[in-house]
Design a binder for these strands. Structure first.
Ligand code: MN
Ligand code: MN
Ligand code: ZN
Ligand code: ZN
Lengths: 142, 142
DNA sequence: TTTTAAATTGTACAAATTACAATTTAAAAA
DNA sequence: TTTTTAAATTGTAATTTGTACAATTTAAAA
């Protein structure tokens, strides 16, 4: 299975020990594409790892975030969500369905980068600009 | 006190009953300028209204949000924060200090509006674009 | 002044997350 | 390969951030 090898390499490169729990959590995140919560991730991964502890999922996700291989994202709803896509991108978000999708747009990124290179913000060292694009998905599958 | 009159008018205009708790919560939000959490607001307002219930603060803030005179804002940290500035603006945010400041920029707003007018996003009806500008405040008062 | 719908309060409950001590395990060292 | 050890996992309890609900009080309309 090539996919598991890639995940193992990603964990290794981040300096993390390889455990079945970590492999399964990362695999679940990558396959989900829905920016799942910790609890959703726990439910999914429990299928393949019975006896998995919810605490472990929180620990694993936190380790991933601390080591930069997963990002935390927050919406208007209750829980934190986790994003295995760490290259620069933004999010489309629908408040009524709480659905969130990736939005990659290099042209927009160039535009923003240029804008903020010229316009310095007094007293603030800018590191990153994130857009939250709020609206409605038209094919609201339900 | 002119300020209280303005707050009373704002509540009236929104169709809300005038109560000491609501006046004090709105006054606290406006004076704070820090996008405080419900719990911070409860601590501040308790000074002037002893016996105030935390539940009331949640109720009042929720009524303000439902009636459009306050916005909820979220960060990557734990709790929701409340913003009495409801005209269009963005936020500067420092992750290490969890500090958040307003960023008004009509030029940027025009740029973004123009960009998204030309570039339609397939399957998504866009309603609003907000920037979270992440970085470090240089005068980190501490 | 009376009436009443809405606001406030206290308590209990809930969801999401964290703390911590005991146990197990990955992987480095021998 | 076996031993060792620091780190990961687990279960439990606690904490944080709220929400639900019934009883009481109150703003403001009549
Ligand atoms: Mn969850
Ligand atoms: Mn709080
Ligand atoms: Zn994403
Ligand atoms: Zn603001």
């Amino acid at each position: 299975m090539k996919r598991v090898d890639e995940i193992v390499k990603k964990l290794s490169d981040a300096g993390l020990k390889i455990t079945p729990q970590r492999i399964a959590v990362m695999q679940s995140l990558v396959e989900a594409k829905t920016h799942p919560t910790a609890e959703e991730t726990y439910r999914r991964v429990s299928q393949s790892i019975p006896g998995l502890s919810p605490t472990t999922v929180y620990n694993v996700l936190d380790a991933f975030v601390r080591n930069g291989i997963v990002n935390k994202v927050k919406t208007d709803a209750g829980a934190m969500r986790y994003d295995p896509v760490t290259d620069n991108h933004h999010h489309l978000y629908c408040e009524s369905s709480d659905r969130m999708e990736d939005f990659h747009d290099p042209e927009l990124d160039r535009l923003l980068e240029e804008y903020f290179q010229n316009k310095k913000i007094h007293g603030f060292r800018l590191k990153d600009v994130k857009l939250q694009i709020v609206g409605e998905f038209e094919n609201s599958k339900k």
